[in-house]
Write a protein that binds this DNA or RNA. Sequence first.
DNA 1: ACTTGCCAATTGCATATGCAATTGGATAGC
DNA 2: GCTATCCAATTGCATATGCAATTGGCAAGT
Lengths: 249, 249
Amino acid sequence: MTETRLDAVKLDGAGPVYDQIRRAIRDLVVSGEWQPGTSVPPEHALMEQLGASRMTVHRALVQLAREGLIIRRRRSGTVVATPPASHAMLDILSIPEEVRQLGQAYAYEVLARTDGRPSPEVAELFGLKRSDKVAHLLVVHRADGKPHVLEERVIHVAGVTGLSDEDFAGTPPGDWLLQHSLWSQAEHAISAIGAGEEQAALLDIAVGEPCLLVERRTWNQLQPVTAVRLLYPGFRHRFVGRFGPYGAA
Amino acid sequence: MTETRLDAVKLDGAGPVYDQIRRAIRDLVVSGEWQPGTSVPPEHALMEQLGASRMTVHRALVQLAREGLIIRRRRSGTVVATPPASHAMLDILSIPEEVRQLGQAYAYEVLARTDGRPSPEVAELFGLKRSDKVAHLLVVHRADGKPHVLEERVIHVAGVTGLSDEDFAGTPPGDWLLQHSLWSQAEHAISAIGAGEEQAALLDIAVGEPCLLVERRTWNQLQPVTAVRLLYPGFRHRFVGRFGPYGAA
DNA sequence: ACTTGCCAATTGCATATGCAATTGGATAGC
DNA sequence: GCTATCCAATTGCATATGCAATTGGCAAGT
């Protein structure tokens, strides 16, 4: 248990006091000056050192604890946490947004739509009964005219209202669903796969070309809403994220 | 601007009052009962309705605002936010951990190590001067004896202490670095690529086989620490994340 | 030694209070 | 009508205060 020097905590006078305290301590932690395991001075000490009230110091410490930089326990005090396993964040944008952010012209085309019952595989994967009604969609999204991503989607009809009257002429299904359905939970998986024959033709790439496959399933209160497979040609796509040891940067 | 019914906020008596209030309002928002754009009752109203002090109500609302569910402005009040673009979280585990979580036996092998200057590409990619010293490493990680992932790593010698004395016999470089260096910022990218000839041989797969490529670069206070390319055979790997509309689930 | 019980240090939570900052909307003046 | 001004509603921040809950460590007793 290393010592912490109390006078290392220095306020900079910018913004609310509680936030100055928070930043001051955070900087000591992320700079490594206060190593994991060292104990942070108790609230009373900081309160006297900094000339702030206990509640103000408390507020700063509570926030740092919520951010995972410190761990607080009654009686035994506050110690610097060891950085947790990191989480990388990937922004999930709608595909039109994604394309426009790249500065390219967006277009899409609904290649096929069938309304019916789920195939056994789909029902299994998605937790549906064979008797539930679903819509299948096949959409290709284009950026500057070139195929950008191939979307295969299954929508659980009972989970969305107004689906049967919608032809997706004005809005691609993903965006339409965002506006017309609620979701409370999603899961996605990223993997790599070679393009199949049909897929290669639609994406205008060679068969076997490595692609990023993003599979996403969405529920609302345990009821399935939609499942989608997005196939991105690998050589022109990368998902980028930035972060720090304690969370998003 | 829709109306919000004040009496919709109901406490459940479990845990701290401020947290009951927070959860009660959060539930109204995520259930869609309070649509985006509707205004949340002012602190005074909630205070009277719930029989709590203003500071307690305040605390709940401040926290909800930090979580992005509501937006607060002086005088104009508090309104329900429209859900932001989602972030998906991918847990970044150390590779030994990753393998063990799959219930498989972990092993690794350092295939090559060279200490020297960065190649022009590496220097460019990583923001190093040609004169900086770097170590190159090539490591294969195995799960139950089979190649799991191929790691190509560059380490900026000046950014880490004790590197030259370390032979990575006991700990793979990624884990060793976590223990012996600080980092404040990281960036990673995921893409799909076909295995090259050498890579295919080391991973025991066919040339051109689709693979997930994870590239990660790490800095400490703007100084480069390490850059790594992790090549996962695509057919046996997927990165999975779970989340909700307002963040991690 | 080992166990039990107690004390005090430390954090957690809630309240009451006061003032500052922002700004929508009303009002007065032109 | 249009603009400048003021007012009041609302949130933001800090303090002072008191009690509750947890628990490390000491002390007493066996």
